[in-house]
Design a protein around this nucleic acid. Structure first.
Length: 637
DNA sequence: AAAAAAG
């Protein structure tokens, strides 16, 4: 006999109940070892344990007669709502969405920490609308393109989609008034069960775009029985992969807000993390009797994991490790999301990703639902990515506020040997202009880790408080640097490409490409760290002969973005002909276009857009071309 | 060639 969910729930409930007064834990008889790390599925949390009837596996569609299945089907969506009216109202802000059922993890030492509470902290002197920090007025002229079969129509409000009470409440807590363009399109697509390849900036609510459908889907999905491979193996229902630890942290933090009090558990796993950052807050709160420093980071991550996970956010390396140790099984994965998907599939990451997605026990495309997000989507990468997708919809969303050029891009010719003094000039000017107030942050990108350390040191020596983030620093140092920068304590951050993608750092006024990247897409991601949340941004690049290969794509990009292209750069661009590798694949208004549309026929420029399914709601695709600006700028993130 | 990601 296999262990059922009901059994697991009963065990946990008994454990949570302390002396186990009301719960009969006997009679669940099976070979399951006495488990301290039992998993409680979302739909069983916060509710009284059921004694019988294993829930069907997710692939099955039948619910077992009298047991968990039937009872839950109603309670998941029906009952909570009824309870809400009184529950939320009477309990004020504290409101337990699920009424007063309080078994599960919202109790005792496992009390779910309010993720909305920890934003105050010393780290956040800027208390404007960080959450909703999007210029909602700029929405209407955002260009959107979709292609694929039977694209579900976009929605205009969250109310149009039934995400469930708990999720709606969290949306309110996040101060999201209405969905962003990417959300308007991506959420209906995902809710319809379709695979998705989406080009969109991070600041646009991309994380929510894939989190909402996942959480909603988990809550309303068939209860699953996760096979008992041993109590130490966990079976997440959703997997979110991202290329850097900091980005995984960021996604986790956001996802926790969205999942708050839904019963859906979000866990993050990444390498090299100090205990108090990777370990869940619940665990910290419990102050369990463990000498933290005697326990490896990994074991703490595992301990956290063992408490059960529905949505696992991870970096590839650590996940592979967990998979090889059989601490995680992907057998039950229903949702797979790759953030910065083009990075995840580039040469460095592809083998690991293929291993995770294709060579472990993850359900194949068509069985699971797959969502890929990035701002840049080179054609070659799209081709690779299509292996992971089934009948997918391609979605390209322009940049919020794109009609105004939020980012001013400058390129200056600076010899290698002059870079430091030139940077110093910029910083001095900034200071003089008062641009570098407490809130004006400068992010300086360099090519190498050693270069980052050297430059940081030199800046500090010269009276500019700087810190650095790169892969040779300990995770603790990395996170400290990021916090110090965000808080304005150290208003200059010298970074390698580890900080190029996805990180949402408010108040970055200036991005300096001290060393230009070799790939134009990297440039796009880098400068996308500024000009966010409707604020203006400045991006300055130091260009010299070493960057000749980038000249053409850079000039094109700047021209598309209505930026002033220096004559000398144009000459460079003209000289470097066959700009094969570095040419932007998509060009134009989006971070990419559907490569499926670029067959031997139909390669005409604007025809392409009209060939795809019109997105609806935005009028004809030709209409916004001018207003939007030839926006390479759409490709942020 | 470099960066990221496991320890």
């Amino acid at each position: 006999m296999r262990a059922s969910w009901a059994d697991l729930a009963a065990n946990t409930a008994a454990e949570n109940a302390g002396a186990g007064t009301s719960v009969n834990n006997a009679g669940t008889g099976n070979s399951l070892p006495p488990s301290r790390s039992t998993y409680v599925p979302p739909h069983l949390r916060n509710r009284r344990p059921l004694a019988e009837s294993p829930a069907p596996p997710y692939s099955g569609s039948t619910t077992s007669g009298s047991g968990a299945g039937t009872a839950n089907a109603g309670s998941r969506w029906g009952a909570p709502r009824a309870e809400n009216r009184s529950g939320v109202g009477s309990s004020g802000g504290r409101g337990n969405v699920w009424g007063n059922r309080s078994a599960g993890w919202d109790r005792g030492r496992d009390r779910e920490v309010n993720p909305f509470g920890d934003q105050d902290d010393t780290e956040q002197p800027f208390n404007e609308q960080e959450n909703s920090g999007i210029n909602f007025d700029a929405y209407e002229d955002i260009p959107v393109e979709t292609s694929g079969d039977n694209v579900p129509p976009p929605v205009n409000t969250f109310a149009e989609i039934d995400l469930g009470e708990a999720l709606n409440l969290n949306i309110m807590r996040c101060k999201y008034v209405k969905p962003t363009p990417v959300q308007r399109h991506a959420i209906p697509i995902s809710l319809a069960g379709r695979d998705l390849m989406a080009c969109a900036q991070t600041g646009s609510g991309k994380t929510a775009a894939f989190c909402f459908p996942i959480i909603s889907g988990i809550l309303r999905g068939q209860p699953v029985q996760r096979p008992p491979r041993g109590v130490r193996t966990v079976y997440p229902l959703a997997l979110v992969l991202s290329p850097t630890r900091e980005l995984s942290m960021q996604i986790h933090e956001e996802a926790r807000k969205f999942a708050y009090q839904t019963g859906v558990k979000v866990v993050v796993a990444y390498g090299g993390a100090p205990i108090n950052h990777q370990v869940s807050l619940q665990l910290l709160e419990s102050r369990c009797c463990i000498a933290y420093n005697e326990i490896s980071y990994l074991s703490m991550a595992l301990r956290d994991l063992e408490k059960g996970v529905d949505i696992l956010v991870a970096t590839p390396g650590r996940l592979v490790d967990l998979l090889e140790r059989a601490r995680v099984s992907l057998q039950m994965i229903r949702y797979l999301a790759l953030d910065e998907a083009d990075r995840m599939l580039d040469m460095g990451f592809e083998p690991q990703i293929r291993k995770i997605v294709e060579q472990m026990d993850m359900p194949p495309p068509g069985v699971r639902q797959t969502m890929l997000f990035s701002a840049t989507f080179p054609k070659e990468i799209q081709r690779l990515a299509s292996d992971f997708l089934s009948r997918y919809i391609f979605l390209a969303v322009g940049r919020v506020g794109s009609s105004t050029d939020l980012i001013v891009q400058r390129v200056e010719y600076v010899q290698e040997s002059d870079k430091r003094s030139h940077l110093m000039d910029l910083l001095h000017a900034q200071r003089a202009n008062g641009v570098q107030g407490k809130q004006a942050l400068t992010l300086v990108f360099v090519e190498t880790k050693k270069g980052a350390d050297a430059l940081e040191h030199w800046l500090c020596m010269n009276g500019f408080p700087a810190t650095t983030i790169h892969g040779d620093r300990t995770q603790q140092e990395r996170e400290m640097a990021l916090r110090s920068f965000k808080s304005g304590n150290t208003p200059i951050l010298v970074a390698t490409d580890v900080a190029a993608r996805g990180l949402d750092i408010p108040h970055v006024a200036h991005v300096v490409n001290f060393d230009l990247p070799n790939d134009i897409d990297d440039y796009v991601h880098r400068i996308g760290r500024t000009g966010r949340a409707g604020k203006k941004g400045l991006a300055t690049a130091f260009f010299n002969d070493n960057n000749a290969s980038l000249a053409r794509s850079l000039a094109e990009l700047m021209q598309e973005a209505n930026q002033e292209v220096p004559a000398w750069l144009s000459r460079y661009a003209a000289r470097s002909s066959f700009g094969g590798r570095n040419r932007r694949s998509g060009g134009g208004r989006f971070g990419g276009r559907d490569f499926r549309r670029e067959g031997s026929f139909n390669r005409g420029g604007s025809d392409y857009y009209n060939a795809g399914n019109s997105s609806g709601g935005y009028g004809a695709s030709g209409g916004y071309g001018g207003a939007y600006g030839p926006g390479a700028s759409s490709a942020w993130d």
